[in-house]
């Protein structure tokens, strides 16, 4: 835990960061790299946001609800009121947080498998309503033609975020770094210790002066807000959303898988899962085996989890402890 500027940890992290910052200068217009890495950061961010709440010990299987509400909130606001995507994405996050507030009220006393199941079921509520409210949400037709991110002016330079893949890459990199920082606080700070105490033994934590309900609620709200934000970003990046796309089980389950794969107690764990699995699948497996890529994907998950029950990050950590 020595945080000096020269520790190898900081060096490694900085090296990786520098790589991601400067690799575009080497690659110029490698569209595949930008597309894949943008989505990698995106899923990394989603996994980090999900893990914030998972750190309290309650596993959610319903984050697609926040994601979908964020996407729809953002897309509809931009469709009807023509606000800048920057504003609507924030609004999307808030819509997610409002639903998170409902969760804390309704599911506040649920734990474990019952909590997981209640969250899983709660995805259906906004999904079916949006699917049937055709006059406002376009129902099953989905929202199409969502405006992309508007250009940002920095001094005299204008960055076209809507068109430039490179700009989107940096945008998602920044988002992910911010969420990574929040995630780090959740593990390392005093708040993080409270969260950890909750996870290990709730009654004991409350004896020690942790406000159980407050800590859980705030964590969930933050997690929901960030997931909603991701949903909004997704809507504006893709330009179209449909209920089955944004309220899918895939969106709820993938963060869990990425996090478990990377290591759920590690600062970079969820991100690590995304950084390994997503590019590997999209660039390598898909082109190697157009039909069987999921078999490789599944096998990697099985084998990794059999050998590293705490995620692949724990392997690195363990190797370090022993050496």
């Amino acid at each position: 835990m020595i945080r000096t500027a020269t520790s190898p940890a900081v060096l490694g992290f900085t090296a990786a960061l520098l790589f991601f910052i400067f690799s575009p200068f080497l690659l110029q217009d490698n569209a595949v790299y930008y597309r894949v890495m943008t989505m990698t950061f995106f899923y990394g961010a989603l996994a980090l946001a999900w893990n914030l709440y998972a750190l309290t010990g309650n596993i959610s299987l319903g984050h697609a609800a926040f994601f979908g509400l964020g996407a729809y909130g953002s897309a509809l606001l931009s469709h009807y009121w023509h606000l800048s995507p920057w504003a609507t994405v924030l609004f999307g996050g808030m819509v997610g947080a409002v639903y998170g507030l409902l969760w804390t009220v309704a599911f506040g006393c649920l734990r474990g498998a019952r909590f997981a199941l209640a969250t899983l079921a709660s995805v259906e509520i906004p999904r079916v309503i949006i699917d049937n409210w055709e006059s406002f949400t376009f129902g099953s037709l989905g929202v199409v033609g969502i405006t992309g991110f508007s250009a940002v002016r920095v001094g005299s330079v204008s960055i076209a975020l809507g068109e430039s893949l490179k700009a989107q890459y940096y945008l998602l990199l920044c988002c992910t770094l911010v969420i990574l920082l929040i995630h780090r606080q959740f593990i390392k700070s005093k708040w993080g210790w409270a969260v950890r105490a909750l996870r290990e033994e709730e009654t004991a934590a409350s004896m020690l002066g942790v406000n159980v309900h407050f800590t859980r609620s705030v964590t969930l709200l933050l997690s929901a807000f960030l997931t909603g934000l991701c949903g909004g970003v997704y809507a504006h990046l893709m330009g179209l959303i449909e209920p089955p796309l944004v309220f899918s089980l895939h969106i709820s389950a993938l963060p869990l898988v990425l996090t478990m794969f990377g290591g759920r107690y590690l600062v970079c764990g969820p991100l690590l899962g995304a950084l390994i699995l997503y590019p590997l699948d999209q660039v390598l497996f898909h082109s190697l085996l157009p039909v069987g890529h999921s078999i490789l994907y599944g096998l990697i998950i099985i084998v990794t989890l059999l050998f590293f029950p705490h995620g692949i990050g724990s392997w690195v950590q363990r190797r370090r402890t022993f050496s």
């Binding site: 898988v257 999921s294 078999i295 994907y297 599944g298 989890l305 059999l306 029950p309």
Partner: peptide
């Protein structure tokens, strides 16, 4: 052979297994 935490790890391992089985 799955390590602790058992429920969560079996969940993820069988998720992978489901993918393998589906595509097989």
């Amino acid at each position: 052979r799955v390590g602790q935490p058992y429920e969560l790890n079996t969940l993820v391992v069988t998720f992978g297994l489901a993918l393998v089985l589906q595509n097989t």
